[in-house]
Write a protein that binds this DNA or RNA. Structure first.
Length: 376
RNA sequence: GGGGAGAUACCAAAGUGGCCAACUGGGGCAGACUGUAAAUCUGCUGGCUUAUGCCUUCGUAGGUCCGAAUCCUGCUCUCCCCA
């Protein structure tokens, strides 16, 4: 994997670049649709490629490990073949699941023991077997196994959590360096910077992670309960400490405004369930604000979904029709909304790239943040 | 014609003397959702007003009682069974 910075905004830390992988190039800043269990929920790969222009999607190690399981993934020849996706894939390690499945987990220096949410069976993730699992999945970019510290954790907890993440990172990289890809294309890996909202911990985490000189750096443990301003502060602290010639990935973020602000602070990669999950639940993101498509006000609005939208659904279906589908609980509603939202998110980063290249990103971003956060 | 059952808020359906403005579903209205245990979850849903407040409600008209959706009587309507 290679990253080249190709443009820089004049008034902010926003930048453009290109990530090269064996499954193709990714223009940054990029948004990566989340396909947890081997599917971006409700969206055809054909749509992802031709309509939404997704250049990379996510998979999740925790979920794929439990189902379909390593035997099937191995027999399939990896996740790309299994799900018929020939562009890049990034897999999260399951660190976030360790965090979100708190009631049924046990953290030890060795790793993390947890109960499957599917059948309650016990499993253990260690940095070592997590590398092995992500080798079998065959992601182009593998994420370190970390503990995602809650945003409201106290300093003591955050420090302890960071120590664990650091020790896991050392072992993870060791195993990574000792093993090889299984399917004939290369795999990159990103450490994950933690440290909650504490500047000195964040700084320490960056320094610790940089020692391994990996392919890119992820910033985790944000948008997990801390105030949004704290998240921005942490980005302002962390990004300048990261090498300019490696991509920076802000994990799990976020709202359109979060993404614009993240780009302004030097972030290159984003992922979030919001466009698909909120889409399934009736929310549409647009350049003019957020729409709750279940609302009565759309009942007789026969205008197109989004006149500024880039997806074919935007010009094809009316607001009244989509509202009807949501009210009637038709699965087609979720499909249309997911398609629209992902297309909007990809348009959001595409236009960001255009404005960074034009050098007027900051003032454009400031205008857009207000617009996209409003309610229609 | 004879016998029986029932009428509760938008719908369905509990409640059979005070804890009932009335359980629960559905529907309706609104909200939440940030490295997906989510096609999920939450709130509200008689009126006024927002308070441990008042007013009007349980087919309809009366009655009993300190007190009725709940008991009694008349009326109206619906459903079932037998001829």
């Amino acid at each position: 994997m290679k990253f080249v910075q190709t443009a820089k905004d004049s008034q902010s830390d926003a930048r453009c670049g290109v990530i090269s992988t064996d499954h193709g190039e990714i223009k940054t800043p990029i948004f990566m649709p989340v396909g947890t269990v081997g599917s971006v929920k409700g969206v055809y790969h054909k749509s992802l490629k031709e309509d939404i222009n997704a250049e990379i999607i996510l998979g999740n190690t925790y979920h794929l490990y439990l189902r379909p399981g390593l035997e099937t993934l191995k027999a399939a020849g990896g996740l790309h073949k299994f799900e018929s996706w020939d562009r890049p894939i990034l897999t999260d390690s399951g660190g976030f699941q360790i965090f979100s499945l708190t009631p049924i987990r046990k953290l030890t220096p060795e790793g993390c023991t947890f109960a499957s949410h599917i059948d309650g069976s016990r499993h253990t993730f260690t940095p070592e077997n997590n590398v092995d699992t992500q080798r079998i999945i065959g992601a182009d970019i593998m994420m370190a196994l970390d503990e995602c510290c809650p945003g409201d954790a106290d300093y003591h907890y955050a420090e302890k959590s960071l120590l664990l993440t650091e020790s896991w990172l050392g072992r993870y990289v060791k195993r990574f360096n000792e093993t090889k890809p299984l399917y004939g294309y290369s795999q990159a890996m990103f450490p994950i910077i933690q440290g909650c909202v504490y500047p000195d911990l964040r700084k320490r985490s960056v320094e610790f992670s940089l020692k391994y000189d990996k392919d890119g750096y992820a910033i985790g443990g944000l948008a997990v309960g801390e105030p949004t301003e704290k998240m921005y502060e942490m980005l302002e602290l962390v990004c300048p400490l990261l090498p300019y010639d490696k991509p920076r990935y802000l994990m799990g973020v976020g709202t359109p405004a979060n993404i614009l602000e993240g780009i302004a602070r030097g972030v290159d990669m984003f992922d979030c369930v919001m466009p698909t999950r909120n889409g399934r639940n009736g929310m549409l993101f647009t350049w003019n604000g957020i729409m709750n498509m279940r609302n009565k006000k759309w009942e007789n609005d026969f205008s197109v979904l989004d006149p500024e939208g880039t997806s074919f659904v935007d010009k094809t279906y009316s607001r009244a029709y989509l509202r009807h589908l949501f009210v009637a609980k038709e699965m087609f509603a979720a499909m249309i909304a997911s398609e629209h939202n992902l297309a909007f998110y990809l348009d959001l980063v595409m236009q960001s790239r255009t404005h960074i290249q034009a050098g007027d990103f900051k003032e454009w971003k400031d205008r857009m943040v207000k617009k996209v956060s409003s309610r229609l």
